[in-house]
Design a protein around this nucleic acid. Structure first.
Lengths: 112, 112
DNA sequence: TATATTATTCTAAAATCATGGAACTATCGA
DNA sequence: TCGATAGTTCCATGATTTTAGAATAATATA
């Protein structure tokens, strides 16, 4: 993988709001305050969490959790997709997001 | 560690030029083209590589390798320091840069 | 000590980014 | 079918970032 791909991935994670969104998908939950994050992700509001595999009505939930407009959330999702970190597909009103685990792992390898 | 710290670290690595500088220190070498990077970092110009522990006349070398002004290189170094990724100290004309391995590892833990 | 070299800081300009509103498309459900 | 809901795209704007030149400070060496 080219160096520019790595910087693109880091850029996708460099914005705090976007990182929060990424974690919602990665850890399958979200925290309104985006407080302390570890392998055990502490929830503030379980209602905006989804089950493994997809975020149902993702945007509305995320808009509720974070103070961002739909349009902004959409931009952030696109950025994460462009970096290859996630893959999204819409199935009616269900928005399925998946982590591209290989990409996450390539970052870890890169830093090893 | 706070979420904002992680995004700060990712931001430091999000710029391709800065990532290249980081790798010069991390892998203790540099590549003018910043080509393919892996655990085995291939050199284009060994002359601008340093020995383990410090980069002697770092800026001049890096300016030669990359097409950036001194002032820009300086800014990038500062950014990497601010993110906590590296520690630099000047010792006369020798500029010692060290990686903060714990910080690099905290990123890997974060992504685990 | 004077001069050359090295790195930092100030300032400014161009480029990129984050964000939201409005208009738009797609889908659900009454 | 019609209204409500979900997400996207276009467009504009304020904020941040990247970059370099000039001035400055620190250091080495002749």
């Amino acid at each position: 993988m080219e160096l520019s791909n790595y910087s693109k991935i880091f850029k996708a994670l460099s914005n705090e709001q976007r990182l929060k969104i990424f974690l919602m998908i990665y850890k399958n939950c979200c925290s309104p305050e985006g407080a302390v994050v570890g392998s055990e992700f502490k929830l503030k509001d379980e209602s905006c969490c989804s089950v493994k595999g997809g975020l149902e009505k993702a945007f509305t939930r995320i808009c509720d959790c974070m103070n961002l407009s739909r349009s902004t959330i959409s931009h952030h999702f696109k950025e994460l997709q462009n970096a290859g970190l996630i893959t999204c597909e819409r199935e009616g009103q269900t928005y399925r997001c998946k982590i591209n685990q290989e990409v996450v792992e390539s970052i870890m390898d890169f830093l090893k």
